[in-house]
């Protein structure tokens, strides 16, 4: 049981930490739609666009995308595990 969970976490770390460097930089389906129709002109700058990990970089440097990805994995794991562990039915107590 533990092996499976550790394996699942390692796969996520590798995807976010390594494979992320090979992701396409082209706009996704929604971004492409709003760009091609001109809707994107109305898009506002993200209020947090100056923060250190904005756009999955570190201080605006894309060379650290993998690091940002690993940080995201750790944060999502901590938050979600914490929430779901708190919410679970406590059948063993």
């Amino acid at each position: 049981m533990k092996k499976f969970f550790i394996g699942f976490a390692v796969v996520s770390l590798l995807i976010a930490g390594v494979l992320s460097y090979f992701a396409s930089g082209d706009p996704d389906g929604l971004d492409k739609t709003v760009e091609d129709t001109g809707i994107a002109e109305h898009a506002q700058e993200h209020p947090l666009s100056d923060t250190v990990f904005a756009d999955y970089a570190v201080g605006g440097d894309d060379a650290f995308t993998g690091l940002a990805g690993i940080l995201g994995v750790v944060v999502v794991l901590a938050l979600s595990f914490g929430l779901f562990w708190f919410l679970r039915k406590r059948t063993n107590v």
């Binding site: 976490a9 996520s12 995807i15 494979l19 992320s20 082209d26 938050l79 779901f84 562990w85 679970r88």
Partner: peptide, 22 residues
């Protein structure tokens, strides 16, 4: 429960990681 809660945390984590891959 004690078994599915950790699984759910890992599913969220996996989705985050894979969403990075355009």
């Amino acid at each position: 429960d004690d078994r599915t809660a950790p699984m759910a945390g890992l599913v969220a984590t996996f989705i985050f990681a894979v969403q990075m891959i355009n």
